[in-house]
């Protein structure tokens, strides 16, 4: 056991097998879940509002978040607040998680780091602002993603957006810069989604035209 305790966490799988060989029971109920299990739990929380799955995620991540909070927020006595705020957001923002874009642990890390950033600013500047999610988005818009291959959002594109006619510019900016979905834009502007699609298509074609003219 001494041997086991003194090991650093180079590889938890090695440790787990070592513990098994030693007949140690500590790890038999370990909370460690693999990436696939985590993704499954996350989807159940997002789609089914499954509390049992949430509790499993809490048991997995809670102690890790607390350890991070103890390092970063210990002086302020806010480690438990960080656990609570982070896990609350895991529940309320679960629908933003996408398995294709990141592992669950990376996403939870992002939620936690953003929350910690806002809490530190509150301590330091007494400001109730929450800018973490603006700086490190919790997701990327699906629409932007699906268009990425044929039209990459780049500095070059940004320069030309201003040259679009206002109605097309509004749509292109909505989709690419505000990361709204086509449906959200349609609702916001009170126009049919078909109109959003056609203006987006016209706008993108025009932007491609600008690009070709300038860079061919």
């Amino acid at each position: 056991m001494e041997n086991f305790q003194s090991q650093t966490a180079e590889n938890r799988y090695d440790k787990a097998s070592l513990a098994k060989n030693n007949g140690a029971t500590q790890l038999s109920n370990t909370n460690e879940l693999d990436a696939e299990q985590l993704a499954e739990l996350m989807l159940k929380v997002a789609n089914l509002r499954c509390k049992v799955s949430f509790a499993k995620l809490f048991k997995h991540f809670g102690p890790k978040i607390s350890a991070f909070g103890n390092q970063r927020l210990h002086q302020q006595g806010l480690a438990m607040d960080l656990v609570q705020e982070t896990m609350t957001r895991v529940w309320t923002k679960a629908h933003l998680y996408s398995e294709d874009k990141a592992a669950v642990s990376t996403w939870v890390f992002t939620v936690m780091r953003n929350q910690c950033f806002d809490m530190l600013r509150k301590v330091q500047h007494n400001k109730e602002d929450s800018f973490g999610d603006d700086i490190w988005p919790l997701f990327e818009s699906d629409d932007a993603e699906s268009n990425e291959d044929d039209f990459k959002l780049s500095g070059t594109l940004l320069r030309h957006v201003d040259e679009l006619p206002p109605l097309q510019r509004q749509i292109v900016q909505g989709i690419y810069m505000q990361e709204m979905t086509q449906q959200e834009l349609a609702d916001k502007l009170g126009i049919p989604i078909g109109t959003v699609k056609s203006r987006l298509r016209l706008g993108l074609e025009k932007l491609k035209g600008f690009m070709e003219k300038h860079y061919d």
Partner: peptide, 17 residues
Amino acid sequence: TECETAATFDNNTESNI
């Protein structure tokens, strides 16, 4: 971000035990 996640979450021996 992936590296930092691993460094922050995976080396957390306490929670493993």
